[in-house]
Design a protein around this nucleic acid. Sequence first.
DNA 1: ACCATATTTGTACTATCGTCCAAATAATCA
DNA 2: TGATTATTTGGACGATAGTACAAATATGGT
Lengths: 244, 244
Amino acid sequence: MVRKPTKSNVKAVSTRKPNMREAILAAAEELFSTYGFNAVSVRDIAQAAGANPGSVTYHFKTKDGLLLEIYRRHCGPMNRRRSELLAAARRVRDLQDRLEAIVRAYVLPAFTSGSDLAGGGTRFTRLRAIMSAEGNEVVRKIIAQTFDDTSHAFIDAIHESLPHIPRTDLVWRGHFLLGALYYTLVTPERVSRLSRGSADGTDAGHAIEELVRATVAALQAAPLDPPISAPRKVPGAAPGRALT
Amino acid sequence: MVRKPTKSNVKAVSTRKPNMREAILAAAEELFSTYGFNAVSVRDIAQAAGANPGSVTYHFKTKDGLLLEIYRRHCGPMNRRRSELLAAARRVRDLQDRLEAIVRAYVLPAFTSGSDLAGGGTRFTRLRAIMSAEGNEVVRKIIAQTFDDTSHAFIDAIHESLPHIPRTDLVWRGHFLLGALYYTLVTPERVSRLSRGSADGTDAGHAIEELVRATVAALQAAPLDPPISAPRKVPGAAPGRALT
DNA sequence: ACCATATTTGTACTATCGTCCAAATAATCA
DNA sequence: TGATTATTTGGACGATAGTACAAATATGGT
Protein backbone atom coordinates (compact mmCIF):
# COMPACT_ATOMS: atom_id res chain seq x y z
CA MET A 1 0.00 0.00 0.00
CA VAL A 2 1.02 3.54 -0.51
CA ARG A 3 2.51 4.58 2.77
CA LYS A 4 3.95 8.01 3.13
CA PRO A 5 7.60 8.22 4.10
CA THR A 6 8.07 9.15 7.72
CA LYS A 7 8.14 12.89 7.87
CA SER A 8 10.47 13.96 10.64
CA ASN A 9 10.05 17.66 10.19
CA VAL A 10 6.52 18.44 11.31
CA LYS A 11 6.54 17.99 15.03
CA ALA A 12 5.49 14.64 16.44
CA VAL A 13 1.97 14.33 15.14
CA SER A 14 1.53 11.07 16.98
CA THR A 15 1.90 7.70 15.31
CA ARG A 16 -1.78 7.35 14.47
CA LYS A 17 -3.17 7.64 10.99
CA PRO A 18 -2.92 11.32 10.21
CA ASN A 19 -5.74 11.26 7.71
CA MET A 20 -7.76 8.16 7.28
CA ARG A 21 -9.80 9.68 4.50
CA GLU A 22 -6.72 10.06 2.34
CA ALA A 23 -5.56 6.56 3.16
CA ILE A 24 -8.87 5.16 2.02
CA LEU A 25 -8.74 7.16 -1.20
CA ALA A 26 -5.22 5.97 -1.94
CA ALA A 27 -6.07 2.36 -1.22
CA ALA A 28 -9.19 2.50 -3.35
CA GLU A 29 -7.32 4.09 -6.21
CA GLU A 30 -4.64 1.44 -6.10
CA LEU A 31 -7.06 -1.47 -5.89
CA PHE A 32 -9.54 -0.15 -8.46
CA SER A 33 -6.80 0.57 -10.96
CA THR A 34 -5.40 -2.93 -10.54
CA TYR A 35 -8.43 -5.19 -10.33
CA GLY A 36 -11.26 -3.02 -11.62
CA PHE A 37 -14.20 -1.53 -9.82
CA ASN A 38 -16.42 -4.57 -9.55
CA ALA A 39 -13.74 -6.95 -8.36
CA VAL A 40 -12.82 -4.86 -5.34
CA SER A 41 -15.05 -4.77 -2.29
CA VAL A 42 -15.43 -1.99 0.22
CA ARG A 43 -13.98 -4.34 2.80
CA ASP A 44 -10.89 -4.90 0.65
CA ILE A 45 -10.34 -1.17 0.50
CA ALA A 46 -10.87 -0.70 4.20
CA GLN A 47 -8.43 -3.45 5.06
CA ALA A 48 -5.81 -2.10 2.68
CA ALA A 49 -6.16 1.33 4.24
CA GLY A 50 -6.11 -0.04 7.76
CA ALA A 51 -9.58 1.32 8.32
CA ASN A 52 -12.97 0.01 9.27
CA PRO A 53 -15.50 -0.68 6.52
CA GLY A 54 -17.87 1.71 8.24
CA SER A 55 -15.38 4.54 7.81
CA VAL A 56 -15.61 4.21 4.06
CA THR A 57 -19.34 4.69 4.23
CA TYR A 58 -18.91 7.59 6.61
CA HIS A 59 -16.54 9.51 4.36
CA PHE A 60 -17.92 8.67 0.95
CA LYS A 61 -21.45 7.48 1.54
CA THR A 62 -21.38 4.81 -1.19
CA LYS A 63 -18.86 2.88 -3.22
CA ASP A 64 -19.77 4.95 -6.26
CA GLY A 65 -19.18 8.08 -4.23
CA LEU A 66 -15.69 6.88 -3.46
CA LEU A 67 -14.98 6.35 -7.13
CA LEU A 68 -16.38 9.76 -7.96
CA GLU A 69 -14.18 11.44 -5.38
CA ILE A 70 -11.11 9.81 -6.91
CA TYR A 71 -12.03 11.33 -10.25
CA ARG A 72 -12.69 14.72 -8.71
CA ARG A 73 -9.29 14.56 -7.13
CA HIS A 74 -7.40 13.99 -10.36
CA CYS A 75 -9.36 15.50 -13.24
CA GLY A 76 -8.71 19.09 -12.29
CA PRO A 77 -4.92 18.95 -11.94
CA MET A 78 -4.52 16.69 -14.94
CA ASN A 79 -6.54 18.86 -17.31
CA ARG A 80 -4.89 22.01 -15.97
CA ARG A 81 -1.50 20.51 -16.69
CA ARG A 82 -2.64 19.45 -20.11
CA SER A 83 -3.84 22.96 -20.89
CA GLU A 84 -0.55 24.45 -19.79
CA LEU A 85 1.49 22.06 -21.88
CA LEU A 86 -0.84 22.53 -24.83
CA ALA A 87 -0.52 26.31 -24.64
CA ALA A 88 3.25 25.98 -24.56
CA ALA A 89 3.18 23.55 -27.47
CA ARG A 90 1.11 25.95 -29.57
CA ARG A 91 3.95 28.47 -29.35
CA VAL A 92 6.49 26.15 -30.95
CA ARG A 93 7.49 27.59 -34.32
CA ASP A 94 8.54 24.59 -36.34
CA LEU A 95 5.43 22.76 -37.53
CA GLN A 96 6.84 19.27 -37.07
CA ASP A 97 8.16 20.09 -33.62
CA ARG A 98 4.89 21.73 -32.69
CA LEU A 99 2.86 18.68 -33.60
CA GLU A 100 5.16 16.51 -31.55
CA ALA A 101 4.90 18.92 -28.63
CA ILE A 102 1.12 18.82 -28.82
CA VAL A 103 1.05 15.05 -28.70
CA ARG A 104 3.51 15.08 -25.83
CA ALA A 105 1.32 17.56 -23.99
CA TYR A 106 -1.52 15.09 -24.27
CA VAL A 107 0.46 12.04 -23.26
CA LEU A 108 2.70 13.35 -20.50
CA PRO A 109 0.07 14.25 -17.89
CA ALA A 110 -1.27 10.74 -18.19
CA PHE A 111 1.98 9.47 -16.73
CA THR A 112 2.77 12.16 -14.18
CA SER A 113 -0.22 13.54 -12.33
CA GLY A 114 -0.16 16.84 -10.53
CA SER A 115 -1.28 15.71 -7.10
CA ASP A 116 0.76 12.57 -6.68
CA LEU A 117 3.95 12.61 -8.66
CA ALA A 118 5.14 9.15 -7.67
CA GLY A 119 3.28 7.06 -10.19
CA GLY A 120 0.00 8.73 -9.33
CA GLY A 121 -0.56 9.74 -12.91
CA THR A 122 -0.20 6.27 -14.31
CA ARG A 123 -2.44 4.89 -11.58
CA PHE A 124 -5.26 7.23 -12.40
CA THR A 125 -4.89 6.69 -16.13
CA ARG A 126 -4.93 2.95 -15.57
CA LEU A 127 -8.09 3.44 -13.58
CA ARG A 128 -9.71 5.36 -16.40
CA ALA A 129 -8.69 2.64 -18.82
CA ILE A 130 -10.31 -0.07 -16.74
CA MET A 131 -13.42 1.99 -16.17
CA SER A 132 -13.89 2.64 -19.87
CA ALA A 133 -13.58 -1.08 -20.49
CA GLU A 134 -16.01 -2.04 -17.75
CA GLY A 135 -18.44 0.55 -19.04
CA ASN A 136 -19.14 1.97 -15.62
CA GLU A 137 -22.16 4.23 -15.92
CA VAL A 138 -21.27 6.45 -12.97
CA VAL A 139 -18.04 7.34 -14.66
CA ARG A 140 -19.21 7.70 -18.23
CA LYS A 141 -20.82 11.04 -17.53
CA ILE A 142 -17.88 12.62 -15.72
CA ILE A 143 -15.60 11.36 -18.45
CA ALA A 144 -17.70 12.91 -21.19
CA GLN A 145 -18.03 16.18 -19.30
CA THR A 146 -14.45 16.53 -18.14
CA PHE A 147 -12.43 15.13 -20.99
CA ASP A 148 -14.35 15.91 -24.13
CA ASP A 149 -13.51 19.60 -23.85
CA THR A 150 -9.83 18.86 -23.49
CA SER A 151 -9.98 16.37 -26.31
CA HIS A 152 -11.58 18.95 -28.58
CA ALA A 153 -8.89 21.46 -27.72
CA PHE A 154 -6.21 18.97 -28.67
CA ILE A 155 -7.94 17.97 -31.86
CA ASP A 156 -8.22 21.61 -32.81
CA ALA A 157 -4.54 22.23 -32.10
CA ILE A 158 -3.57 19.21 -34.12
CA HIS A 159 -5.83 20.32 -36.94
CA GLU A 160 -3.99 23.64 -37.04
CA SER A 161 -0.73 21.81 -37.52
CA LEU A 162 -2.23 19.50 -40.13
CA PRO A 163 -4.91 21.60 -41.86
CA HIS A 164 -4.93 19.39 -44.94
CA ILE A 165 -6.24 16.40 -43.02
CA PRO A 166 -9.98 16.22 -42.33
CA ARG A 167 -11.00 16.57 -38.73
CA THR A 168 -12.72 13.20 -38.78
CA ASP A 169 -9.48 11.39 -39.49
CA LEU A 170 -7.72 13.30 -36.74
CA VAL A 171 -10.46 12.33 -34.30
CA TRP A 172 -9.95 8.71 -35.21
CA ARG A 173 -6.21 8.94 -34.72
CA GLY A 174 -6.58 10.72 -31.42
CA HIS A 175 -8.93 7.94 -30.42
CA PHE A 176 -6.30 5.38 -31.35
CA LEU A 177 -3.74 7.29 -29.33
CA LEU A 178 -5.90 7.09 -26.23
CA GLY A 179 -6.49 3.38 -26.77
CA ALA A 180 -2.78 2.71 -27.16
CA LEU A 181 -2.03 4.77 -24.09
CA TYR A 182 -4.61 2.93 -22.03
CA TYR A 183 -3.51 -0.49 -23.16
CA THR A 184 0.12 0.29 -22.48
CA LEU A 185 -0.66 1.20 -18.89
CA VAL A 186 -3.05 -1.70 -18.35
CA THR A 187 -0.68 -4.44 -19.52
CA PRO A 188 2.78 -3.15 -18.63
CA GLU A 189 4.38 -6.55 -18.93
CA ARG A 190 3.25 -7.50 -22.40
CA VAL A 191 5.80 -5.47 -24.31
CA SER A 192 8.64 -6.89 -22.29
CA ARG A 193 7.41 -10.38 -23.00
CA LEU A 194 7.05 -9.91 -26.76
CA SER A 195 10.36 -8.11 -27.03
CA ARG A 196 12.06 -11.12 -25.49
CA GLY A 197 13.34 -9.01 -22.65
CA SER A 198 15.10 -6.41 -24.73
CA ALA A 199 12.69 -3.68 -23.64
CA ASP A 200 11.48 -2.81 -20.21
CA GLY A 201 7.75 -2.25 -20.26
CA THR A 202 7.89 -0.51 -16.94
CA ASP A 203 10.09 2.28 -18.23
CA ALA A 204 7.54 5.05 -18.55
CA GLY A 205 9.93 7.43 -20.26
CA HIS A 206 10.67 5.05 -23.07
CA ALA A 207 7.01 4.16 -23.47
CA ILE A 208 6.16 7.84 -23.85
CA GLU A 209 8.76 8.34 -26.53
CA GLU A 210 7.59 5.31 -28.48
CA LEU A 211 4.00 6.39 -28.19
CA VAL A 212 4.70 9.97 -29.26
CA ARG A 213 6.79 8.86 -32.22
CA ALA A 214 4.18 6.43 -33.43
CA THR A 215 1.31 8.85 -32.92
CA VAL A 216 2.94 11.74 -34.75
CA ALA A 217 3.52 9.48 -37.72
CA ALA A 218 -0.04 8.23 -37.61
CA LEU A 219 -1.43 11.75 -37.47
CA GLN A 220 0.61 12.78 -40.48
CA ALA A 221 -0.56 9.89 -42.62
CA ALA A 222 -2.55 10.72 -45.72
CA PRO A 223 -6.27 10.86 -44.98
CA LEU A 224 -8.71 8.27 -46.18
CA ASP A 225 -10.25 9.25 -49.50
CA PRO A 226 -14.04 9.52 -49.74
CA PRO A 227 -14.68 6.07 -51.18
CA ILE A 228 -13.50 3.20 -49.02
CA SER A 229 -13.44 1.02 -52.10
CA ALA A 230 -9.80 1.13 -53.13
CA PRO A 231 -7.22 0.56 -50.41
CA ARG A 232 -4.40 1.42 -52.77
CA LYS A 233 -1.26 3.40 -52.38
CA VAL A 234 -2.06 7.07 -52.12
CA PRO A 235 -0.51 9.25 -54.82
CA GLY A 236 0.23 12.93 -54.47
CA ALA A 237 -3.29 13.84 -55.48
CA ALA A 238 -4.44 14.08 -51.89
CA PRO A 239 -5.72 17.44 -50.54
CA GLY A 240 -2.30 17.94 -49.04
CA ARG A 241 0.99 16.16 -48.97
CA ALA A 242 0.99 13.21 -46.66
CA LEU A 243 4.23 13.73 -44.84
CA THR A 244 6.38 16.69 -44.12
CA MET B 1 -21.15 -33.50 -28.54
CA VAL B 2 -23.01 -31.57 -31.17
CA ARG B 3 -26.55 -32.82 -31.34
CA LYS B 4 -28.67 -32.67 -34.42
CA PRO B 5 -32.43 -32.36 -34.71
CA THR B 6 -33.78 -35.74 -35.81
CA LYS B 7 -37.24 -34.28 -36.04
CA SER B 8 -37.89 -32.25 -39.14
CA ASN B 9 -41.51 -31.49 -38.42
CA VAL B 10 -42.55 -28.77 -36.07
CA LYS B 11 -45.40 -30.40 -34.19
CA ALA B 12 -45.99 -29.36 -30.64
CA VAL B 13 -42.32 -29.04 -29.87
CA SER B 14 -43.34 -26.37 -27.38
CA THR B 15 -41.04 -23.37 -27.13
CA ARG B 16 -38.05 -25.18 -25.71
CA LYS B 17 -34.53 -24.29 -26.67
CA PRO B 18 -33.08 -26.66 -29.27
CA ASN B 19 -29.63 -26.34 -27.75
CA MET B 20 -29.45 -24.74 -24.39
CA ARG B 21 -25.70 -25.04 -24.14
CA GLU B 22 -25.21 -22.82 -27.15
CA ALA B 23 -27.77 -20.32 -25.90
CA ILE B 24 -25.93 -20.04 -22.60
CA LEU B 25 -22.62 -19.54 -24.37
CA ALA B 26 -24.06 -16.83 -26.59
CA ALA B 27 -25.70 -15.03 -23.70
CA ALA B 28 -22.55 -15.17 -21.61
CA GLU B 29 -20.45 -13.87 -24.47
CA GLU B 30 -22.79 -10.97 -25.02
CA LEU B 31 -23.04 -10.04 -21.36
CA PHE B 32 -19.35 -10.50 -20.54
CA SER B 33 -18.28 -8.43 -23.52
CA THR B 34 -20.64 -5.65 -22.52
CA TYR B 35 -20.36 -5.42 -18.75
CA GLY B 36 -17.20 -7.35 -17.96
CA PHE B 37 -16.73 -10.65 -16.21
CA ASN B 38 -17.19 -9.58 -12.62
CA ALA B 39 -20.29 -7.48 -13.19
CA VAL B 40 -22.27 -10.34 -14.71
CA SER B 41 -23.70 -13.08 -12.53
CA VAL B 42 -24.43 -16.64 -13.47
CA ARG B 43 -28.08 -15.87 -12.88
CA ASP B 44 -27.94 -12.97 -15.33
CA ILE B 45 -26.57 -15.30 -17.97
CA ALA B 46 -29.13 -17.98 -17.27
CA GLN B 47 -31.98 -15.53 -17.49
CA ALA B 48 -30.71 -14.03 -20.74
CA ALA B 49 -30.44 -17.51 -22.20
CA GLY B 50 -33.83 -18.56 -20.92
CA ALA B 51 -32.20 -21.25 -18.85
CA ASN B 52 -31.98 -22.28 -15.25
CA PRO B 53 -28.93 -21.21 -13.24
CA GLY B 54 -28.29 -24.84 -12.47
CA SER B 55 -27.94 -25.60 -16.17
CA VAL B 56 -24.96 -23.31 -16.37
CA THR B 57 -23.24 -25.26 -13.64
CA TYR B 58 -24.20 -28.50 -15.31
CA HIS B 59 -22.68 -27.61 -18.68
CA PHE B 60 -19.65 -25.61 -17.61
CA LYS B 61 -19.03 -26.57 -14.01
CA THR B 62 -17.94 -23.07 -12.93
CA LYS B 63 -18.21 -19.49 -14.11
CA ASP B 64 -14.53 -19.57 -15.05
CA GLY B 65 -15.18 -22.72 -17.04
CA LEU B 66 -17.81 -20.89 -19.00
CA LEU B 67 -15.40 -18.09 -19.81
CA LEU B 68 -12.75 -20.58 -20.82
CA GLU B 69 -15.13 -22.35 -23.18
CA ILE B 70 -15.92 -19.06 -24.89
CA TYR B 71 -12.22 -18.57 -25.55
CA ARG B 72 -11.80 -22.13 -26.78
CA ARG B 73 -14.64 -21.52 -29.17
CA HIS B 74 -13.10 -18.48 -30.83
CA CYS B 75 -9.33 -18.67 -30.55
CA GLY B 76 -8.94 -21.47 -33.04
CA PRO B 77 -10.94 -20.03 -35.93
CA MET B 78 -9.63 -16.51 -35.36
CA ASN B 79 -5.98 -17.49 -35.37
CA ARG B 80 -6.49 -19.80 -38.31
CA ARG B 81 -8.00 -16.96 -40.26
CA ARG B 82 -5.19 -14.69 -39.24
CA SER B 83 -2.62 -17.18 -40.43
CA GLU B 84 -4.34 -17.55 -43.77
CA LEU B 85 -4.54 -13.81 -44.32
CA LEU B 86 -0.97 -13.38 -43.17
CA ALA B 87 0.27 -16.01 -45.59
CA ALA B 88 -1.57 -14.28 -48.41
CA ALA B 89 -0.21 -10.90 -47.36
CA ARG B 90 3.35 -12.21 -47.39
CA ARG B 91 2.96 -12.95 -51.08
CA VAL B 92 2.17 -9.36 -52.01
CA ARG B 93 5.01 -8.01 -54.14
CA ASP B 94 4.95 -4.28 -53.53
CA LEU B 95 6.52 -3.56 -50.15
CA GLN B 96 4.10 -0.81 -49.17
CA ASP B 97 1.09 -2.86 -50.20
CA ARG B 98 2.47 -5.89 -48.41
CA LEU B 99 2.84 -4.02 -45.14
CA GLU B 100 -0.69 -2.77 -45.43
CA ALA B 101 -1.93 -6.27 -46.18
CA ILE B 102 -0.15 -7.62 -43.14
CA VAL B 103 -1.75 -5.06 -40.87
CA ARG B 104 -5.11 -5.76 -42.44
CA ALA B 105 -4.60 -9.46 -41.86
CA TYR B 106 -4.12 -8.73 -38.19
CA VAL B 107 -7.05 -6.36 -37.84
CA LEU B 108 -9.70 -7.98 -40.00
CA PRO B 109 -10.27 -11.21 -38.05
CA ALA B 110 -10.85 -9.10 -34.94
CA PHE B 111 -13.98 -7.73 -36.60
CA THR B 112 -15.28 -10.77 -38.43
CA SER B 113 -14.90 -14.04 -36.60
CA GLY B 114 -15.03 -17.37 -38.33
CA SER B 115 -17.71 -19.04 -36.28
CA ASP B 116 -20.18 -16.22 -35.95
CA LEU B 117 -20.10 -13.79 -38.82
CA ALA B 118 -22.79 -11.46 -37.54
CA GLY B 119 -20.78 -9.32 -35.20
CA GLY B 120 -19.33 -12.32 -33.47
CA GLY B 121 -15.81 -11.19 -34.13
CA THR B 122 -16.24 -7.78 -32.61
CA ARG B 123 -17.98 -9.31 -29.62
CA PHE B 124 -15.13 -11.64 -28.87
CA THR B 125 -12.53 -8.95 -29.39
CA ARG B 126 -14.46 -6.65 -27.08
CA LEU B 127 -14.46 -9.46 -24.57
CA ARG B 128 -10.70 -9.84 -24.81
CA ALA B 129 -10.32 -6.10 -24.38
CA ILE B 130 -12.37 -6.07 -21.20
CA MET B 131 -10.60 -9.12 -19.85
CA SER B 132 -7.18 -7.61 -20.40
CA ALA B 133 -8.33 -4.50 -18.56
CA GLU B 134 -9.79 -6.41 -15.66
CA GLY B 135 -6.64 -8.45 -15.40
CA ASN B 136 -8.50 -11.73 -15.22
CA GLU B 137 -6.03 -14.39 -14.16
CA VAL B 138 -7.89 -17.30 -15.72
CA VAL B 139 -7.61 -15.62 -19.08
CA ARG B 140 -4.08 -14.27 -18.89
CA LYS B 141 -2.60 -17.68 -19.46
CA ILE B 142 -4.70 -18.65 -22.44
CA ILE B 143 -4.06 -15.22 -23.93
CA ALA B 144 -0.31 -15.57 -23.56
CA GLN B 145 -0.35 -19.11 -24.93
CA THR B 146 -2.72 -18.57 -27.82
CA PHE B 147 -1.91 -15.10 -29.02
CA ASP B 148 1.77 -14.61 -28.41
CA ASP B 149 2.69 -17.02 -31.18
CA THR B 150 0.47 -15.21 -33.63
CA SER B 151 1.78 -11.86 -32.49
CA HIS B 152 5.34 -13.02 -33.04
CA ALA B 153 4.49 -14.19 -36.51
CA PHE B 154 3.04 -10.80 -37.36
CA ILE B 155 5.96 -8.93 -35.85
CA ASP B 156 8.30 -11.08 -37.90
CA ALA B 157 6.36 -10.43 -41.08
CA ILE B 158 6.35 -6.70 -40.41
CA HIS B 159 10.04 -6.79 -39.66
CA GLU B 160 10.66 -8.33 -43.07
CA SER B 161 8.88 -5.41 -44.68
CA LEU B 162 10.68 -2.88 -42.51
CA PRO B 163 14.07 -4.44 -41.83
CA HIS B 164 15.67 -1.10 -41.00
CA ILE B 165 13.48 -0.64 -37.92
CA PRO B 166 14.54 -2.45 -34.74
CA ARG B 167 12.26 -5.21 -33.57
CA THR B 168 11.68 -3.50 -30.26
CA ASP B 169 10.07 -0.50 -31.90
CA LEU B 170 7.87 -2.73 -34.02
CA VAL B 171 6.74 -4.57 -30.91
CA TRP B 172 5.75 -1.29 -29.33
CA ARG B 173 3.82 -0.23 -32.38
CA GLY B 174 2.06 -3.55 -32.64
CA HIS B 175 1.18 -3.13 -29.00
CA PHE B 176 -0.28 0.28 -29.74
CA LEU B 177 -2.26 -1.20 -32.60
CA LEU B 178 -3.85 -3.74 -30.30
CA GLY B 179 -4.67 -1.07 -27.76
CA ALA B 180 -6.25 1.15 -30.39
CA LEU B 181 -8.21 -1.79 -31.73
CA TYR B 182 -9.47 -2.76 -28.30
CA TYR B 183 -10.44 0.76 -27.35
CA THR B 184 -12.28 1.28 -30.61
CA LEU B 185 -14.43 -1.75 -29.98
CA VAL B 186 -14.97 -1.02 -26.31
CA THR B 187 -16.20 2.54 -26.76
CA PRO B 188 -17.92 2.54 -30.14
CA GLU B 189 -19.78 5.76 -29.50
CA ARG B 190 -16.89 8.00 -28.55
CA VAL B 191 -15.66 8.71 -32.05
CA SER B 192 -19.11 9.69 -33.21
CA ARG B 193 -19.42 12.05 -30.29
CA LEU B 194 -16.09 13.76 -30.81
CA SER B 195 -16.63 14.02 -34.55
CA ARG B 196 -19.84 15.90 -33.92
CA GLY B 197 -21.81 13.27 -35.74
CA SER B 198 -19.86 13.37 -38.97
CA ALA B 199 -18.55 9.86 -38.48
CA ASP B 200 -20.38 6.75 -37.49
CA GLY B 201 -18.47 4.84 -34.87
CA THR B 202 -20.49 1.75 -35.53
CA ASP B 203 -19.29 1.45 -39.12
CA ALA B 204 -16.78 -1.33 -38.74
CA GLY B 205 -15.51 -1.02 -42.29
CA HIS B 206 -14.54 2.59 -41.90
CA ALA B 207 -12.97 1.96 -38.52
CA ILE B 208 -10.80 -0.75 -40.03
CA GLU B 209 -9.61 1.52 -42.80
CA GLU B 210 -8.76 4.31 -40.38
CA LEU B 211 -6.96 1.91 -38.11
CA VAL B 212 -4.97 0.32 -40.91
CA ARG B 213 -3.98 3.65 -42.36
CA ALA B 214 -2.83 5.02 -39.02
CA THR B 215 -1.00 1.84 -38.08
CA VAL B 216 0.92 1.54 -41.33
CA ALA B 217 2.12 5.10 -40.91
CA ALA B 218 3.10 4.47 -37.31
CA LEU B 219 5.02 1.33 -38.24
CA GLN B 220 6.96 3.22 -40.91
CA ALA B 221 8.02 6.01 -38.61
CA ALA B 222 11.70 6.43 -37.96
CA PRO B 223 12.80 4.38 -34.97
CA LEU B 224 13.82 5.92 -31.68
CA ASP B 225 17.53 6.52 -31.53
CA PRO B 226 19.49 4.98 -28.66
CA PRO B 227 19.52 8.08 -26.48
CA ILE B 228 16.09 9.33 -25.51
CA SER B 229 17.59 12.73 -24.88
CA ALA B 230 16.84 14.59 -28.08
CA PRO B 231 13.29 14.35 -29.43
CA ARG B 232 14.23 16.28 -32.53
CA LYS B 233 13.33 15.87 -36.12
CA VAL B 234 14.99 12.82 -37.55
CA PRO B 235 17.27 13.51 -40.50
CA GLY B 236 18.18 11.01 -43.15
CA ALA B 237 20.95 9.63 -41.01
CA ALA B 238 18.71 6.94 -39.54
CA PRO B 239 19.49 3.26 -40.28
CA GLY B 240 16.92 3.50 -43.01
CA ARG B 241 14.61 6.07 -44.46
CA ALA B 242 11.53 6.65 -42.38
CA LEU B 243 8.87 6.65 -45.03
CA THR B 244 8.54 5.29 -48.46
C1' DA C 1 -11.78 20.25 32.39
C1' DC C 2 -15.90 20.48 29.81
C1' DC C 3 -18.82 20.06 26.05
C1' DA C 4 -19.84 19.66 21.17
C1' DT C 5 -18.44 17.69 17.23
C1' DA C 6 -15.94 14.53 14.19
C1' DT C 7 -14.51 10.17 13.47
C1' DT C 8 -13.99 5.24 14.25
C1' DT C 9 -15.72 0.82 15.62
C1' DG C 10 -18.48 -3.28 15.84
C1' DT C 11 -22.29 -5.34 14.37
C1' DA C 12 -26.31 -6.41 11.85
C1' DC C 13 -29.37 -6.27 8.00
C1' DT C 14 -30.80 -7.62 3.44
C1' DA C 15 -29.50 -8.96 -1.14
C1' DT C 16 -26.99 -11.53 -4.11
C1' DC C 17 -23.11 -14.26 -5.22
C1' DG C 18 -21.20 -19.13 -7.06
C1' DT C 19 -22.07 -23.63 -6.43
C1' DC C 20 -24.32 -27.86 -5.14
C1' DC C 21 -27.96 -31.45 -5.08
C1' DA C 22 -31.99 -34.41 -5.40
C1' DA C 23 -36.03 -34.80 -7.90
C1' DA C 24 -38.40 -34.14 -12.31
C1' DT C 25 -38.38 -34.36 -17.14
C1' DA C 26 -36.69 -35.24 -21.93
C1' DA C 27 -33.98 -37.90 -25.18
C1' DT C 28 -31.79 -42.19 -26.78
C1' DC C 29 -31.43 -46.87 -27.86
C1' DA C 30 -31.62 -52.17 -26.84
C1' DT D 1 -41.83 -50.59 -25.34
C1' DG D 2 -38.92 -50.16 -21.07
C1' DA D 3 -34.37 -49.10 -19.50
C1' DT D 4 -30.80 -45.89 -19.43
C1' DT D 5 -28.77 -41.71 -19.88
C1' DA D 6 -28.77 -36.68 -20.51
C1' DT D 7 -30.63 -32.54 -19.26
C1' DT D 8 -33.47 -29.28 -16.72
C1' DT D 9 -35.55 -27.73 -12.63
C1' DG D 10 -36.25 -25.48 -8.14
C1' DG D 11 -34.47 -24.96 -3.95
C1' DA D 12 -30.85 -24.68 -0.67
C1' DC D 13 -26.21 -23.74 1.24
C1' DG D 14 -22.46 -20.83 2.97
C1' DA D 15 -19.93 -16.77 1.70
C1' DT D 16 -19.73 -12.21 0.73
C1' DA D 17 -21.58 -8.01 -1.10
C1' DG D 18 -23.05 -2.80 0.06
C1' DT D 19 -24.92 -0.20 3.41
C1' DA D 20 -26.93 1.45 7.90
C1' DC D 21 -26.70 2.56 12.71
C1' DA D 22 -25.81 2.99 17.63
C1' DA D 23 -22.13 2.90 20.75
C1' DA D 24 -17.39 4.05 21.59
C1' DT D 25 -13.61 7.07 21.07
C1' DA D 26 -10.79 10.99 19.54
C1' DT D 27 -10.51 15.92 18.61
C1' DG D 28 -10.72 20.88 19.21
C1' DG D 29 -12.43 25.20 21.09
C1' DT D 30 -13.44 27.61 25.38
